[in-house]
Protein backbone atom coordinates (compact mmCIF):
# COMPACT_ATOMS: atom_id res chain seq x y z
CA UNK A 1 0.00 0.00 0.00
CA UNK A 2 2.75 2.41 0.97
CA UNK A 3 4.58 1.52 -2.21
CA UNK A 4 1.49 2.25 -4.25
CA UNK A 5 1.00 5.62 -2.60
CA UNK A 6 4.60 6.55 -3.41
CA UNK A 7 4.49 5.26 -6.96
CA UNK A 8 4.92 7.92 -9.65
CA UNK A 9 1.72 6.78 -11.31
CA UNK A 10 -0.38 7.40 -8.20
CA UNK A 11 1.37 10.66 -7.37
CA UNK A 12 0.75 11.97 -10.86
CA UNK A 13 -2.94 11.21 -10.72
CA UNK A 14 -3.31 12.57 -7.18
CA UNK A 15 -1.52 15.83 -7.93
CA UNK A 16 -4.55 17.87 -9.13
CA UNK A 17 -6.68 16.87 -6.14
CA UNK A 18 -3.87 17.46 -3.69
CA UNK A 19 -3.14 20.90 -5.15
CA UNK A 20 -6.80 21.85 -4.76
CA UNK A 21 -6.97 20.50 -1.21
CA UNK A 22 -3.84 22.40 -0.16
CA UNK A 23 -5.21 25.59 -1.67
CA UNK A 24 -8.55 25.13 0.10
CA UNK A 25 -6.85 24.50 3.43
CA UNK A 26 -4.71 27.59 2.97
CA UNK A 27 -7.85 29.63 2.25
CA UNK A 28 -9.71 28.33 5.30
CA UNK A 29 -6.65 28.94 7.45
CA UNK A 30 -6.27 32.56 6.37
CA UNK A 31 -9.99 33.28 6.25
CA UNK A 32 -12.05 30.87 8.37
CA UNK A 33 -15.28 32.64 7.42
CA UNK A 34 -14.85 31.38 3.87
CA UNK A 35 -15.75 27.94 5.16
CA UNK A 36 -19.48 28.54 4.76
CA UNK A 37 -22.15 27.96 2.18
CA UNK A 38 -22.14 31.58 1.23
CA UNK A 39 -18.36 31.89 1.22
CA UNK A 40 -17.82 28.85 -0.95
CA UNK A 41 -20.57 29.90 -3.31
CA UNK A 42 -18.98 33.28 -3.74
CA UNK A 43 -15.43 32.05 -4.17
CA UNK A 44 -16.37 29.32 -6.60
CA UNK A 45 -18.98 31.33 -8.49
CA UNK A 46 -17.19 31.31 -11.82
CA UNK A 47 -16.17 27.67 -11.60
CA UNK A 48 -19.01 26.50 -13.82
CA UNK A 49 -18.25 28.53 -16.97
CA UNK A 50 -14.50 28.07 -16.54
CA UNK A 51 -14.92 24.33 -16.04
CA UNK A 52 -17.10 24.07 -19.15
CA UNK A 53 -14.56 26.00 -21.22
CA UNK A 54 -11.79 23.81 -19.82
CA UNK A 55 -13.69 20.70 -20.85
CA UNK A 56 -14.09 22.19 -24.33
CA UNK A 57 -10.34 22.73 -24.54
CA UNK A 58 -9.78 19.21 -23.23
CA UNK A 59 -11.69 17.70 -26.15
CA UNK A 60 -9.40 19.53 -28.58
CA UNK A 61 -6.23 18.59 -26.70
CA UNK A 62 -7.33 14.94 -26.70
CA UNK A 63 -6.78 14.79 -30.46
CA UNK A 64 -3.44 16.61 -30.22
CA UNK A 65 -4.72 20.00 -31.30
CA UNK A 66 -4.93 23.28 -29.42
CA UNK A 67 -7.73 25.86 -29.44
CA UNK A 68 -6.59 29.45 -29.02
CA UNK A 69 -10.05 30.78 -29.83
CA UNK A 70 -12.16 29.25 -27.09
CA UNK A 71 -12.20 32.49 -25.03
CA UNK A 72 -13.62 34.72 -27.79
CA UNK A 73 -15.93 31.85 -28.75
CA UNK A 74 -17.36 31.71 -25.23
CA UNK A 75 -17.69 35.49 -25.42
CA UNK A 76 -19.62 35.18 -28.69
CA UNK A 77 -22.04 32.59 -27.33
CA UNK A 78 -22.52 34.75 -24.24
CA UNK A 79 -23.45 37.66 -26.51
CA UNK A 80 -25.86 35.49 -28.50
CA UNK A 81 -27.35 34.23 -25.25
CA UNK A 82 -27.89 37.73 -23.90
CA UNK A 83 -29.42 39.09 -27.10
CA UNK A 84 -30.86 36.73 -29.71
CA UNK A 85 -31.76 33.96 -27.31
CA UNK A 86 -33.65 36.47 -25.17
CA UNK A 87 -35.44 38.32 -27.95
CA UNK A 88 -36.03 35.49 -30.42
CA UNK A 89 -35.44 32.08 -28.82
CA UNK A 90 -35.83 30.04 -32.01
CA UNK A 91 -33.35 32.16 -33.92
CA UNK A 92 -31.05 32.20 -30.90
CA UNK A 93 -30.99 28.42 -30.64
CA UNK A 94 -30.30 28.17 -34.37
CA UNK A 95 -27.41 30.64 -34.05
CA UNK A 96 -25.91 28.57 -31.23
CA UNK A 97 -26.28 25.38 -33.26
CA UNK A 98 -24.55 27.11 -36.17
CA UNK A 99 -21.67 27.93 -33.81
CA UNK A 100 -21.29 24.25 -32.95
CA UNK A 101 -21.46 23.30 -36.63
CA UNK A 102 -18.74 25.87 -37.37
CA UNK A 103 -16.52 24.16 -34.82
CA UNK A 104 -17.10 20.77 -36.44
CA UNK A 105 -16.22 22.38 -39.77
CA UNK A 106 -12.96 23.68 -38.30
CA UNK A 107 -12.10 20.17 -37.18
CA UNK A 108 -12.74 18.90 -40.69
CA UNK A 109 -10.65 21.69 -42.25
CA UNK A 110 -7.74 21.07 -39.89
CA UNK A 111 -7.80 17.35 -40.62
CA UNK A 112 -8.37 17.69 -44.35
CA UNK A 113 -5.53 20.13 -44.99
CA UNK A 114 -3.42 18.89 -42.07
CA UNK A 115 -3.21 22.45 -40.77
CA UNK A 116 -1.57 23.68 -37.59
CA UNK A 117 -4.55 24.14 -35.27
CA UNK A 118 -2.82 26.93 -33.38
CA UNK A 119 -2.82 29.23 -36.41
CA UNK A 120 -6.31 28.33 -37.59
CA UNK A 121 -7.85 28.91 -34.17
CA UNK A 122 -5.84 32.09 -33.78
CA UNK A 123 -7.47 33.39 -36.94
CA UNK A 124 -10.87 32.20 -35.80
CA UNK A 125 -10.50 34.09 -32.52
CA UNK A 126 -10.70 37.31 -34.58
CA UNK A 127 -13.76 36.01 -36.36
CA UNK A 128 -15.63 35.06 -33.16
CA UNK A 129 -14.75 38.39 -31.59
CA UNK A 130 -15.84 40.23 -34.71
CA UNK A 131 -19.24 38.53 -34.83
CA UNK A 132 -19.68 39.17 -31.10
CA UNK A 133 -18.94 42.85 -31.58
CA UNK A 134 -21.47 43.00 -34.42
CA UNK A 135 -24.14 41.39 -32.26
CA UNK A 136 -23.40 43.41 -29.15
CA UNK A 137 -21.29 46.51 -29.88
CA UNK A 138 -21.41 47.74 -26.29
CA UNK A 139 -21.67 45.74 -23.06
CA UNK A 140 -25.27 44.96 -22.25
CA UNK A 141 -28.08 42.59 -23.14
CA UNK A 142 -30.06 40.49 -20.73
CA UNK A 143 -29.68 36.87 -19.90
CA UNK A 144 -32.85 34.79 -20.30
CA UNK A 145 -34.51 34.29 -16.96
CA UNK A 146 -34.38 30.49 -17.15
CA UNK A 147 -30.59 30.53 -17.39
CA UNK A 148 -30.37 32.78 -14.35
CA UNK A 149 -32.73 30.47 -12.55
CA UNK A 150 -30.58 27.45 -13.31
CA UNK A 151 -27.41 29.19 -12.21
CA UNK A 152 -29.04 30.35 -9.00
CA UNK A 153 -30.44 26.92 -8.23
CA UNK A 154 -30.18 25.77 -4.64
CA UNK A 155 -29.56 22.06 -4.40
CA UNK A 156 -30.87 20.26 -1.34
CA UNK A 157 -30.93 16.60 -0.61
CA UNK A 158 -31.30 14.33 2.36
CA UNK A 159 -28.32 12.43 3.66
CA UNK A 160 -28.55 10.39 6.89
CA UNK A 161 -31.55 12.47 7.89
CA UNK A 162 -29.75 15.79 7.45
CA UNK A 163 -30.52 18.40 4.85
CA UNK A 164 -27.37 18.76 2.78
CA UNK A 165 -26.98 21.94 0.78
CA UNK A 166 -23.84 21.79 -1.38
CA UNK A 167 -22.79 25.06 -3.00
CA UNK A 168 -24.26 25.10 -6.50
CA UNK A 169 -20.89 25.49 -8.30
CA UNK A 170 -19.55 22.38 -6.55
CA UNK A 171 -22.68 20.45 -7.41
CA UNK A 172 -22.64 21.58 -11.03
CA UNK A 173 -18.92 20.91 -11.42
CA UNK A 174 -19.43 17.39 -10.12
CA UNK A 175 -22.25 16.82 -12.61
CA UNK A 176 -20.10 18.11 -15.49
CA UNK A 177 -17.18 15.91 -14.46
CA UNK A 178 -19.38 12.81 -14.16
CA UNK A 179 -21.17 13.32 -17.48
CA UNK A 180 -17.98 13.92 -19.44
CA UNK A 181 -16.21 11.11 -17.64
CA UNK A 182 -18.97 8.68 -18.64
CA UNK A 183 -18.97 9.91 -22.22
CA UNK A 184 -15.27 10.12 -22.90
CA UNK A 185 -13.67 7.71 -20.47
CA UNK A 186 -16.26 4.95 -20.14
CA UNK A 187 -18.27 4.78 -23.36
CA UNK A 188 -17.13 2.57 -26.20
CA UNK A 189 -16.85 5.38 -28.74
CA UNK A 190 -15.06 7.57 -26.19
CA UNK A 191 -12.27 4.99 -26.23
CA UNK A 192 -11.85 5.46 -29.97
CA UNK A 193 -11.80 9.25 -29.53
CA UNK A 194 -9.04 9.04 -26.94
CA UNK A 195 -7.16 6.42 -28.93
CA UNK A 196 -7.02 8.91 -31.81
CA UNK A 197 -4.82 11.08 -29.61
CA UNK A 198 -2.63 8.21 -28.47
CA UNK A 199 -1.86 6.57 -31.79
CA UNK A 200 -3.79 7.97 -34.76
CA UNK A 201 -2.18 5.48 -37.12
CA UNK A 202 -3.38 2.53 -35.10
CA UNK A 203 -6.87 3.99 -35.08
CA UNK A 204 -7.03 4.40 -38.84
CA UNK A 205 -5.43 0.99 -39.29
CA UNK A 206 -8.27 -0.46 -37.25
CA UNK A 207 -10.64 1.06 -39.82
CA UNK A 208 -11.93 4.17 -37.99
CA UNK A 209 -12.37 7.50 -39.76
CA UNK A 210 -10.02 10.14 -38.37
CA UNK A 211 -12.08 12.84 -40.11
CA UNK A 212 -15.19 11.80 -38.23
CA UNK A 213 -13.27 11.67 -34.97
CA UNK A 214 -11.82 15.17 -35.41
CA UNK A 215 -15.21 16.57 -36.33
CA UNK A 216 -16.82 14.92 -33.33
CA UNK A 217 -14.23 16.29 -30.94
CA UNK A 218 -14.43 19.81 -32.33
CA UNK A 219 -18.22 19.72 -32.27
CA UNK A 220 -18.13 18.62 -28.62
CA UNK A 221 -15.74 21.47 -27.88
CA UNK A 222 -18.19 23.83 -29.59
CA UNK A 223 -21.06 22.45 -27.53
CA UNK A 224 -19.23 22.94 -24.25
CA UNK A 225 -18.10 26.39 -25.38
CA UNK A 226 -21.78 27.29 -25.90
CA UNK A 227 -22.67 25.93 -22.47
CA UNK A 228 -19.81 27.95 -20.94
CA UNK A 229 -21.09 31.14 -22.57
CA UNK A 230 -24.66 30.56 -21.41
CA UNK A 231 -23.66 29.71 -17.84
CA UNK A 232 -21.48 32.80 -17.76
CA UNK A 233 -24.35 35.17 -18.58
CA UNK A 234 -26.44 33.30 -16.03
CA UNK A 235 -24.02 34.70 -13.46
CA UNK A 236 -23.37 38.14 -14.91
CA UNK A 237 -26.87 38.80 -16.31
CA UNK A 238 -25.34 40.87 -19.11
CA UNK A 239 -22.74 40.16 -21.75
CA UNK A 240 -19.84 41.80 -23.53
CA UNK A 241 -17.82 40.64 -26.53
CA UNK A 242 -14.67 40.63 -24.40
CA UNK A 243 -16.31 38.98 -21.40
CA UNK A 244 -14.37 35.72 -21.77
CA UNK A 245 -11.10 36.70 -23.46
CA UNK A 246 -9.15 35.27 -20.53
CA UNK A 247 -10.84 31.89 -20.91
CA UNK A 248 -8.44 30.74 -23.60
CA UNK A 249 -5.58 30.84 -21.15
CA UNK A 250 -7.69 29.55 -18.25
CA UNK A 251 -8.88 26.57 -20.24
CA UNK A 252 -5.41 25.48 -21.32
CA UNK A 253 -4.07 25.97 -17.82
CA UNK A 254 -7.03 24.09 -16.34
CA UNK A 255 -6.51 21.01 -18.49
CA UNK A 256 -2.79 20.93 -17.76
CA UNK A 257 -3.34 21.54 -14.01
CA UNK A 258 -5.81 18.67 -14.06
CA UNK A 259 -3.16 16.24 -15.18
CA UNK A 260 -3.92 16.35 -18.89
CA UNK A 261 -1.01 16.07 -21.27
CA UNK A 262 -0.36 18.25 -24.25
CA UNK A 263 -0.14 15.33 -26.66
CA UNK A 264 -0.95 11.66 -26.62
CA UNK A 265 -4.63 11.67 -25.68
CA UNK A 266 -3.93 11.51 -21.94
CA UNK A 267 -6.67 13.62 -20.41
CA UNK A 268 -8.89 13.53 -17.36
CA UNK A 269 -12.31 15.22 -17.26
CA UNK A 270 -12.43 15.12 -13.46
CA UNK A 271 -8.92 16.52 -13.33
CA UNK A 272 -9.83 19.28 -15.76
CA UNK A 273 -12.76 20.35 -13.60
CA UNK A 274 -10.55 20.29 -10.50
CA UNK A 275 -7.96 22.30 -12.41
CA UNK A 276 -10.58 24.89 -13.30
CA UNK A 277 -11.62 25.09 -9.62
CA UNK A 278 -8.01 25.50 -8.52
CA UNK A 279 -7.57 28.41 -10.91
CA UNK A 280 -10.77 30.06 -9.71
CA UNK A 281 -9.80 29.68 -6.06
CA UNK A 282 -6.26 30.94 -6.59
CA UNK A 283 -7.69 34.39 -7.22
CA UNK A 284 -9.80 34.36 -4.05
CA UNK A 285 -6.87 33.16 -1.99
CA UNK A 286 -4.79 36.13 -3.02
CA UNK A 287 -7.59 38.48 -2.07
CA UNK A 288 -7.77 36.89 1.37
CA UNK A 289 -4.03 37.24 1.72
CA UNK A 290 -4.57 40.92 0.93
CA UNK A 291 -2.20 40.64 -1.98
CA UNK A 292 -3.00 43.21 -4.58
CA UNK A 293 -5.19 41.97 -7.43
CA UNK A 294 -2.28 42.85 -9.69
CA UNK A 295 -0.81 39.47 -8.92
CA UNK A 296 -3.95 37.49 -9.78
CA UNK A 297 -2.79 36.45 -13.23
CA UNK A 298 0.74 35.96 -12.01
CA UNK A 299 -0.40 33.63 -9.28
CA UNK A 300 -2.22 31.53 -11.83
CA UNK A 301 0.95 31.33 -13.91
CA UNK A 302 2.93 30.54 -10.79
CA UNK A 303 0.61 27.72 -9.77
CA UNK A 304 0.74 26.31 -13.28
CA UNK A 305 4.53 26.34 -13.29
CA UNK A 306 4.67 24.89 -9.78
CA UNK A 307 2.39 21.98 -10.65
CA UNK A 308 4.26 21.32 -13.89
CA UNK A 309 7.53 21.43 -11.97
CA UNK A 310 6.19 18.87 -9.51
CA UNK A 311 5.08 16.69 -12.38
CA UNK A 312 8.49 17.00 -14.04
CA UNK A 313 10.02 15.96 -10.72
CA UNK A 314 7.78 12.89 -10.50
CA UNK A 315 8.58 11.93 -14.10
CA UNK A 316 12.27 12.46 -13.50
CA UNK A 317 12.15 10.20 -10.45
CA UNK A 318 10.36 7.60 -12.51
CA UNK A 319 12.92 7.74 -15.29
CA UNK A 320 15.78 7.00 -12.93
Amino acid sequence: MKNYLLSPKFMRSALPGVSLAILLMAIFYTQPRAMSYFGLNLMLQYTVPIALATIAQMFILTVNDLDLSIGPFVGLTACIGATLLQTDPVFGVMALLACIAAYAGLGALIHWRNLPSIVVTLGMSFVWLGIAVLILPTPGGTAPAWIKAIMGFKVTFQLFGYNVVPPFPVFAAAIIAIVVHLGLMRSSYGVVLRGAGGNPRAISRAGWSMLKIKMTMFALAGLFGVLAGLSLIGLTSAADAHIADRYTLYSIAGVILGGGEFVGGRVSPAGAVIGAMTLTLAGSFLIFLRISPDWQVGAQGGILILVLALRALINWREAR
Binding site: S188, V191, V192, G195, G265
Partner: peptide
Protein backbone atom coordinates in the same frame (compact mmCIF):
# COMPACT_ATOMS: atom_id res chain seq x y z
CA UNK B 1 -0.27 -0.52 -33.19
CA UNK B 2 -1.61 -0.17 -29.69
CA UNK B 3 -2.71 3.15 -28.22
CA UNK B 4 -0.39 3.74 -25.26
CA UNK B 5 -2.89 5.95 -23.44
CA UNK B 6 -5.58 3.27 -23.32
CA UNK B 7 -5.97 0.17 -21.20
CA UNK B 8 -5.58 -3.38 -22.45
CA UNK B 9 -9.34 -3.89 -22.67
CA UNK B 10 -9.83 -0.56 -24.43
CA UNK B 11 -7.24 -1.50 -27.03
CA UNK B 12 -9.20 -4.67 -27.71
CA UNK B 13 -12.28 -2.53 -28.22
CA UNK B 14 -10.47 -0.37 -30.83
CA UNK B 15 -9.86 -3.52 -32.83
CA UNK B 16 -13.50 -4.68 -32.82
CA UNK B 17 -15.98 -2.06 -34.06
CA UNK B 18 -18.95 -4.17 -32.95
CA UNK B 19 -17.74 -4.45 -29.37
CA UNK B 20 -20.04 -1.83 -27.90
Amino acid sequence: SLCPNLTVAENARIFHPNLK
